[in-house]
Write a protein that binds this DNA or RNA. Sequence first.
DNA 1: AAAAAACTGTGATTCAAATCATACTATCAA
DNA 2: TTGATAGTATGATTTGAATCACAGTTTTTT
Lengths: 240, 240
Amino acid sequence: MSCSNHNCNKCQHNLCTHRVPIFSDLASDEMNQVTDLIIRKKFDKGELIVMEGNLLEGLYIINQGRVKAFRYTQEAKEQILYLFTEGDFFGEKNLLRKQPVTYYVEALEETNICVIPHKNFYELLRNAPSISVKIMEQLCIRIEHLESSIQNMGSKNMESRVSLILLEFAQKYGVRKGNGVLVDVPLTREGIANYIGVTRETVSRKLSSLQEEGTIELIGNKKIMIHTIKALELEFSKEI
Amino acid sequence: MSCSNHNCNKCQHNLCTHRVPIFSDLASDEMNQVTDLIIRKKFDKGELIVMEGNLLEGLYIINQGRVKAFRYTQEAKEQILYLFTEGDFFGEKNLLRKQPVTYYVEALEETNICVIPHKNFYELLRNAPSISVKIMEQLCIRIEHLESSIQNMGSKNMESRVSLILLEFAQKYGVRKGNGVLVDVPLTREGIANYIGVTRETVSRKLSSLQEEGTIELIGNKKIMIHTIKALELEFSKEI
DNA sequence: AAAAAACTGTGATTCAAATCATACTATCAA
DNA sequence: TTGATAGTATGATTTGAATCACAGTTTTTT
């Protein structure tokens, strides 16, 4: 996009407005209007971005990086609800209903956040009603993700739970490499465990057994080469 | 509400429009406009209302009765996602994104549904933009419910999972009776099990032990008297 | 009202994942 | 570069829920 018609020092950042689905229908001057309102924040790996109960000052949109959103279970174990990446947002509850966020959000790597303050957002909604439809769509996508998670957690079969998470990673973070897909895993083994509600040891063992049977290849701790996606899908639906 | 200004034979039904949160901000003439568009459907106990994959003709709103929304796990076990009651709606995915429903919905008792057809709904959205905010709010409520379910299912402690479901029932279906709360349970033991991802036997045993310790009293199969709500809450948060 | 069907409770047994334990490996900071 | 810290793999053991089995109960049907 050309810089001719707005403040150019903003072009140097990868602007949230240009990569976020909820703004994708805006005309370029509307887009620039939004851009002017943005507050930028930067977080280091491991840093807590928001805490459960916080009243946020606006909508948080991820410009760069990856974060985990989680709660604690009764046993005080972390239960990851979402992995958010570039273009994802959170804090929408506070936007509509003045309610605090219901989970912790922590940066999994260096992360840049764009915040669109509340009151600016209300104006925005009035001026560009297409945005409210976009938000609804995104909320529906989130609902679908949660529904699938519950469906998955209802399964006693750990093999299939691990397989599903690998499929999700492949789809979100995978890059084709020859016949397979190379995944840059955003979580530790323990993180994966906290995502699917098992222990770290169980994840280790299931990954090892998948490697043994040739379906995947563990490359260090942060990369997984998936040789046969089909095998995972099969594994996942084996018992239907 | 008075019947003087619209078709009175509709007043004889308990109209969805009057009990549904998403229409609560409408003026009464707007309300009547909506009412005229409604298609009514009736389902017997045990009847399947929609199937996964169905493209619905509109937004389904429950006027009377209770239903369960569920998917199947890898082991072909039912996994209940929602219990919907009067005022709740489903089929919103198809509304915004022309997508089929992602779960089965079955009547748990005799149920009356009001359907607002698609294209009527789009007009409605244009004429009464407050509705889109209401829908977003409802979607956020649904998200919160799903997030809590995941948090709960991440807990290995079955005692606390059963306790949480009883608290949910008490809140949604409970009636104060003396010191306690009498709950009209909408599900069988197996249904409860399919809601929290365990087996029927486990639910039986945990309910029995809660009865033994005096926290609850099982009255037939469909009613539970909760003597000490506090004990459940304690049970639920015991291990924090 | 009787018969059939669906649901429930509880003991005995099995089994898979949690837990415990420990050695190994990768990553980060001084 | 080294030491410290965080993360990983894997064997041995325990544990608690799933499974199996079956008798008892409730609800529905005719």
